[in-house]
Design a protein around this nucleic acid. Structure first.
Length: 262
DNA sequence: ATGCCTTTCCCAGAAAGA
């Protein structure tokens, strides 16, 4: 059994007291982490090493930052992806993707650009980014080896993936071009591994910090596990770890945990 | 939510998040 997870930690520094016990008690084999918000030299490498995890981190400072941590081996790391677009300066590609092979599976950890508003240049950047991602990963998707793209996609695939679609009319995360971009990824051979419902109407993964959104059930499913044929066929269970959205110092995202018969 | 929380930059308030 291989247990693979994705979690937007919203600062690895702030979340370390939650991350370490979660890894240990949850018996997580591989975790894809987003929004570490640190440069590589500020990542808590020694804490993860002491916990038994190898780390591949890609961070450039206060924004973005992604990591794969694994206790089942970690090799063939690829930082970013081929022809990853930049927002402005072509030399300033943001730290939003990292890929590694962990035991029997290969994973790409992604933090998809937010997009801000549909008429904002960051929205066009988001669509470019997703398109280029698809081009870059098609080989791994079609390979026989279990492979998945896990992370914060910043897109709710369907209206059921937001707590109130009426609230999102005209917003990012729900527009047709964004959903088309996910459909294209599925068209390459990726399958949306949807967690089972633990509570409420839907397996949401994100709740705003403000206004008691979590307790009101005002969530979104935007943290996704997209697995290729071999990965999807090996899935035995998938859950949202809602407990991690509770308690002291939570991230605004909850982890998604997938058990694989590998 | 017109950002009502949180984080990082760093010690004041901007920027960003979804």
């Amino acid at each position: 059994m291989l247990r693979v997870a994705t979690w937007n930690v919203n600062s690895i520094t702030s979340r370390l007291p939650r991350l370490l016990p979660w890894l240990a008690e949850g018996e997580i084999d591989v975790a894809c982490l987003q929004e570490t918000k640190v440069a590589d030299d500020a990542f808590p490498h020694s804490d993860l090493a002491a916990a038994g995890y190898e780390v591949a981190h890609h961070g450039l400072g206060r924004w973005n930052g992604v990591a794969v941590v694994s206790r089942v081996g970690l090799k063939d790391v690829e930082v970013g992806f081929d022809a990853a677009p930049a927002f402005g300066d072509p030399e300033a590609v943001e730290a939003r993707a990292i890929t590694a092979t962990c035991g029997p599976a290969r994973v790409t950890c992604v933090y998809v650009p937010n997009g801000r508003e549909p008429d904002n240049p960051h929205y066009a950047y988001k669509l470019r980014w997703l398109d280029a991602l698809g081009d870059a990963i098609s080989g791994d998707v079609s390979a026989d080896r279990p492979y998945a793209v896990l992370g914060d996609y910043n897109v709710a695939p369907t209206d059921a993936d937001v707590w109130d679609p009426e609230q999102f009319v005209g917003s990012t995360h729900v527009t047709a071009p964004e959903r088309d971009a996910l459909a294209r990824l599925r068209g390459l051979g990726l399958h949306d591994v949807i967690p089972r419902i633990a509570k409420g109407p839907h397996p949401y993964t994100y709740w705003d910090y403000r206004g008691g959104a979590f307790h009101k059930g005002q969530g979104m499913r935007i943290d996704l596990v997209y697995g290729n044929e071999a990965f999807a066929a090996a899935v035995r269970d998938a859950v949202v770890d809602r407990e991690m959205r509770k308690g002291t110092g939570p991230s605004d995202h909850a982890p998604v945990i997938v058990d694989l018969d590998l």
